[in-house]
């Protein structure tokens, strides 16, 4: 028998919530970035899981909406990390701290 979809989605939701909590509460910029990656991964898991549900068309052909979407997301995630780390580096050159709270020039 295969894995019940409810469990997959619950896992995905849990990971998403962990990611959100991490992104909102941690002060270290790199950890925040990692948390965002976690959120994207949670979405991927949901996409792949749902693709298991919607895997065939009415005519019986295979459908890959979710999996293709997940692939795109992985690529985009890599792009996002690259830009994010670039911003981080340019910030660190001007200011020697990784803590979000030190970004005090602009009010949060």
């Amino acid at each position: 028998m295969s894995i019940p979809i409810e469990h997959v989605i619950s896992l995905s939701a849990l990971l998403f919530v962990i990611g959100v909590v991490g992104a909102l509460t941690r002060r270290n910029l790199i950890v925040i970035l990692m948390s965002i990656e976690l959120m994207l991964n949670a979405a991927n898991l949901a996409l792949v899981g749902f693709n298991r549900v919607w895997s065939v068309t009415a005519e019986g052909a295979a459908r890959y909406d979710g999996q293709v979407f997940a692939l795109m997301v992985i690529a985009v995630a890599a792009a996002e990390v690259a830009v994010g780390l670039g911003i981080l580096l340019s910030l660190i050159r001007n200011r020697d701290s990784l803590n979000v709270d030190d970004a005090s020039l602009l009010r949060w």
Binding site: V20, I36, A46, W54, D65, G66, E80, I87, A103, L106
Partner: peptide, 27 residues
């Protein structure tokens, strides 16, 4: 720098939220 950082962090969270919403809609 800080503007970019702030925009990036909040934007990335927002797009992750959007993505999750899309996954749910798809499901």
């Amino acid at each position: 720098n800080e503007a970019a950082l702030k925009y990036f962090l909040m934007g990335a969270v927002a797009s992750a939220v959007l993505l999750y919403g899309m996954a749910l809609l798809y499901g």
